[in-house]
Design a protein around this nucleic acid. Structure first.
Length: 723
DNA sequence: AGCACGCCGACT
DNA sequence: GTCGGCGTGCTC
C-alpha cells in the first residue's frame, strides 16, 4: 500500500498519510496540494514523496482530498525544496512555509454521517449530520475528528474562491414588463455589468423592488467573473546588443540594465527574481507579457496566478515567492543579488540568491545576476559591464567643516538648489529625532529596558518620547536626568526629524517633505517638478523619481556604515552607487558629510569605477577567510536568563570545538545586540568550505535549555539600517 | 496538597 | 507552529 509523505507549512519534516479514500490519481499525486487532518483540524500540505507501508507502529490517518486538478509543484520544484531545506539546515516544512505563505486557501468544508452508519454513534450536538450534508463550520472540530477517526464521517473539501459576482442581463425583456422594469433592463444592458442590485436601481432611477422583480423572473442575474489583473502601461525598449551571454550584467543606469536583461531574455522562458516589489514594478512595464508574482498581491490572486502559470513559456517576474512555480525555465536571473531584503525573515532565514542558484542547478540552466554593483559572491563570474554613470561626488570633511548637523558648505549647496528651484534629497540612517538621548552633565543615556540598545528620541509634543525601534517599547522622555537631576539633554546622531528641524531654521523658504517607511508625506508637488527637499531614510530608494533632483546629501554618511559587520563597507559602497543612479538620466550631486573622506567607497565613486573597491574588498575577505572565500553559518542562542543562554552557547561551542579545525569556529560571544526583546543573545560563527560546514552542521548537538536559531549565510550582524 | 510556570517532545 | 504532559518550585 502506498503512503503519502505530506509536507505541511509547519516547522516539521513531512508527515505520512494514507491516500484519500477516493484516490484516483495515476501519477501518485506527487506535488499535489492535499487536505489532511491535523490535530483535529484541517490543514493543506503538498505531497512530496511516497513510501511503501504502512510499517508504522501507529495507525496512519487518511488524507481527506486533493485540492487541484494539476500538481502544485513539479518534480524539479520538489527536488529543489528538499535540497534547499538541507542547504538551509531547516525542515522542508519550514522552507515550504517561507516560500509559499499563500499555499493554504480558505476551504469549503462539508460533512455528513456515512449513509450506512448508525446515527446512534453521533455524539450530542452532531445529530444534524444524520440528515445530510452540513457546513463543517459550526460543529466542534474535536467531535468531528472523533467521527473521522471512527471512519463514519464523509467529507467534501474544496478551495474557496471569492469570485466576483456581477449583475448582467440574461434574456430579452418581455412586452409584459412595466416601463420601469424595461428601463432598468436596458440600463443594465447598456452598462454591461454592475456590482449590485442597488447600483442598478440607482443607475436606472427605479426602486430596488423593480430590480428584484427582474432578477426573480430571470431577466437579469448574477454571474461570476474572474477579477481582472491591474493593467500595466507597456513601455518600449531600444534593444541592446549583448556580445555573449554573460553571467553578470553590471553597471550603467537602471534603464541600461533593463535593456541588457531584455536582450538576454528574448527567446527563453526565464525566472527573474527581485528583492522587493518596488524594484519589480520598475521592470514590469518593459515586460508587459510577463507573469508577475509578489507579496503585494492578495493571497487569492497569487494562487490564481500559480494555477494558471503552468501553461506559460515566457518571463516570470517575481519575488522569492516565485521560486517554486512549476515551470521549466531556461534561465534564472537574480536582480540586485546583494540586497539584504533577500534574507527571508521566516524560520528558514534562507538567502534567496543562494536558493536561486540551487533552483537553476536543479533545472540544469544558467543563472545570471543583474545589478548596479554585483555582490562579492559573484564577482568572479564573466561580466557584461555597462558603462557606469560618472557620479558627481562632493566630500565634506567633518573634521574641518563647521556646523552640525548641516555644515556651512552643505547649507550653501542646499541654498543653490533653492535658488535654482531644483530638488534635493537629504538622507539619514535614523527616522526619529536622534539616535539617542544623553545627559549633558553625567553621560546617562536612555536605554531600552528590553534590549541592549539606546532608545531613539522622537520629538513631538513638549518633551517628546523615547522609542525602541527593535521591540517597540515606548516611554515619555524624562524632564530631569534620572541619574543626576540635570535638565540639560544632548541628543546625538541626527535623525530625520532633527534634519527637518534644522532645515526649517536654515532655509525656511524651501518646502520640506518627509519620507520614511512609517511616515510618507504627499510628494505630489515634487513629482510635478516644484522645488523642495525630501528628507528621509533609505525608504527613499523606493520612492518615485524626483524629476528635478539636483542634490543627494548625507549629513552623516558614516552613520550608514555599521560596525561589527564584515559586509559594512561593501554595503555602503553599493548604497552610494544606488544614490548616484536615483534619477534615470540626470547626475545629481552626491554630497557626503563624513569623518572618513578617504573611505575606499568614496575613492571608487571618484574614479567612476567600482572595480577597484571590489578588488581590495575581495583581497581582504580572502585574507580573513570570510565569504565569498568561505561559507558562513551563524548559530544563535537566546534565553530570557543570561546564565542559561551563556551556558547553552558554551555547551554548543564545547561540542563543536573538538571537531573544528583552526579558524573554523569564531566565538562564542555575546551578539552585537546582547539583549533583544528581553532575551539574552549569544552567537558563534562557523566559517569554512562548503563541505566542512555540511559536516559540522550534521553533527550539531541538540541545544538544551535555550532556543537555538541557525542563520545560514548571515547577511548582517546588527539590526538593519532603519527605514 | 494545589497550582503556576516553563521546558520539551509530539504532531502522521 | 501549537498543544499537552510533566517536573520544579512556590503558596495556602
Amino acid at each position: 500500500m502506498r503512503v503519502l509523505k505530506v509536507a505541511l507549512p509547519l516547522p516539521i519534516e513531512p508527515m505520512s498519510y494514507l491516500p484519500p479514500h477516493a484516490d484516483t490519481r495515476e501519477d501518485g499525486a506527487l506535488g499535489y496540494r492535499v487536505v489532511v487532518p491535523w490535530r483535529g483540524e484541517l490543514r493543506v500540505g503538498v505531497v512530496v514523496g511516497h513510501e511503501e507501508g504502512p510499517h508504522k507502529s501507529f495507525a496512519l490517518r487518511e488524507a481527506i482530498a486533493y485540492l487541484d486538478e494539476k500538481p502544485w509543484l513539479n518534480p524539479s520544484g520538489l527536488e529543489f525544496l528538499t535540497r534547499a531545506a538541507r542547504d538551509s539546515f531547516c525542515t522542508v516544512g519550514t522552507l515550504l512555509n517561507d516560500l509559499l505563505p499563500f499555499l493554504e486557501p480558505p476551504l469549503l468544508h462539508r460533512v455528513r454521517l456515512l449513509p450506512e452508519a448508525d446515527p446512534a454513534v453521533l455524539p450530542r450536538g452532531l445529530e444534524a449530520l444524520a440528515e445530510g450534508w452540513q457546513e463543517a463550520r459550526g460543529f466542534d472540530p474535536k467531535l468531528l475528528d472523533y467521527l473521522r477517526e471512527g471512519g463514519v464521517l464523509q467529507e467534501e473539501v474544496a478551495e474557496q474562491r471569492s469570485q466576483q459576482q456581477v449583475l448582467v442581463v440574461l434574456r430579452e425583456p418581455s412586452e409584459k414588463l412595466s416601463e420601469k422594469a424595461k428601463a432598468a433592463w436596458y440600463a443594465l444592458r447598456d452598462l454591461r455589468q454592475l456590482e449590485s442590485m442597488a447600483a442598478l436601481a440607482r443607475a436606472a432611477g427605479v426602486g430596488v423592488g423593480v430590480v428584484k422583480g427582474l432578477l426573480d423572473k430571470g431577466y437579469i442575474g448574477f454571474v461570476e467573473v474572474e477579477p481582472a489583473p491591474p493593467a500595466v502601461v507597456a513601455r518600449k525598449l531600444e534593444p541592446l546588443g549583448l556580445p555573449t551571454t554573460p553571467v553578470r550584467l553590471e553597471g550603467g543606469r537602471l534603464l541600461d540594465r533593463i535593456r541588457a536583461l531584455a536582450t538576454l531574455l528574448q527567446t527563453e522562458p526565464a525566472l527573474v527574481l527581485f528583492p522587493e516589489v518596488s524594484l519589480l514594478k520598475k521592470f514590469q512595464p518593459f515586460f508587459p507579457q510577463a507573469i508577475v508574482l509578489h507579496g503585494e498581491m492578495k493571497a487569492e490572486e497569487r494562487r490564481r496566478v500559480w494555477a494558471q502559470a503552468g501553461n506559460s513559456t515566457g518571463v516570470v517576474l517575481a519575488t522569492y515567492q516565485g521560486l517554486l512555480l512549476p515551470l521549466e525555465w531556461r534561465r534564472v536571473v537574480v536582480v540586485e543579488e546583494a540586497a539584504e531584503a533577500y534574507k527571508l525573515p521566516g524560520g528558514s532565514r534562507a538567502f534567496v540568491p543562494r536558493l536561486a542558484r540551487l533552483r537553476a542547478q536543479g533545472l540544469g540552466v544558467s543563472i545570471h545576476y543583474c545589478s548596479s554593483v554585483n555582490s562579492a559572491e559573484v564577482w568572479h563570474e564573466p561580466a557584461y559591464l555597462l558603462p557606469p554613470p560618472s557620479p558627481r561626488l562632493h566630500l565634506l570633511d567633518l573634521r574641518q567643516e563647521r556646523g552640525w548637523p548641516f555644515s556651512g558648505a552643505a547649507i550653501a549647496i542646499l541654498q543653490q538648489v533653492q535658488e535654482k528651484k531644483r530638488q534635493a534629497i537629504v538622507l539619514s540612517a535614523r527616522r526619529g529625532y536622534s539616535a539617542l538621548l544623553r545627559c549633558k552633565q553625567c553621560d546617562w543615556k536612555a536605554m531600552c529596558p528590553n534590549c541592549a540598545l539606546p532608545l531613539r528620541y522622537h520629538k513631538s509634543g513638549r518633551l517628546g518620547f523615547l522609542q525602541c525601534h527593535q521591540c517597540g517599547h515606548e516611554q515619555k522622555a524624562p524632564e530631569l536626568c534620572p541619574s543626576c537631576q540635570s535638565d540639560v539633554f544632548d541628543p546625538q546622531g541626527p535623525g530625520v526629524e532633527w534634519l527637518l528641524e534644522a532645515l526649517a531654521r536654515h532655509l525656511p523658504a524651501l518646502p520640506r517633505y518627509r519620507y520614511t517607511a512609517d511616515a510618507k508625506d504627499d510628494l505630489g508637488p515634487l513629482l510635478v517638478g516644484e522645488p523642495g527637499v525630501l528628507v528621509g531614510t533609505t525608504a527613499i530608494l523606493r520612492a518615485p523619481v524626483l524629476p528635478e533632483l539636483a542634490l543627494v546629501l548625507l549629513p552623516y554618511a558614516d552613520g550608514f556604515v555599521l560596525e561589527s559587520d564584515f559586509r559594512a563597507a561593501e554595503r555602503y559602497h553599493r548604497l552610494l552607487w544606488q544614490l548616484a543612479d536615483l534619477h534615470p538620466h540626470r547626475r545629481p550631486l552626491l554630497a557626503l558629510q563624513t569623518f572618513e573622506p578617504h573611505h575606499p567607497a568614496h575613492k571608487a565613486l571618484q574614479a567612476a569605477d567600482p572595480r577597484g573597491f571590489m578588488e581590495v574588498e575581495l583581497a581582504l575577505r580572502r585574507t580573513l577567510g570570510y565569504p565569498p572565500a568561505s561559507r558562513m553559518v551563524k548559530l544563535e542562542v537566546a534565553h530570557p536568563k543570561e546564565p542559561i543562554a551563556r551556558d547553552a552557547i558554551l555547551q554548543l561551542a564545547a561540542a563543536l570545538k573538538p571537531q573544528a579545525e583552526p579558524g573554523e569556529l569564531l566565538g562564542p560571544a555575546p551578539a552585537p545586540v546582547a539583549r533583544l526583546r528581553g532575551q539574552y543573545v549569544f552567537h558563534l560563527l562557523l566559517k569554512s568550505s562548503e563541505a566542512r560546514i555540511q559536516t559540522l552542521m550534521e553533527n550539531l548537538p541538540p541545544v538544551r535549555g535555550a532556543r537555538l536559531r541557525i542563520d545560514p549565510d548571515p547577511q548582517s550582524f546588527v539590526g538593519l539600517l532603519e527605514d
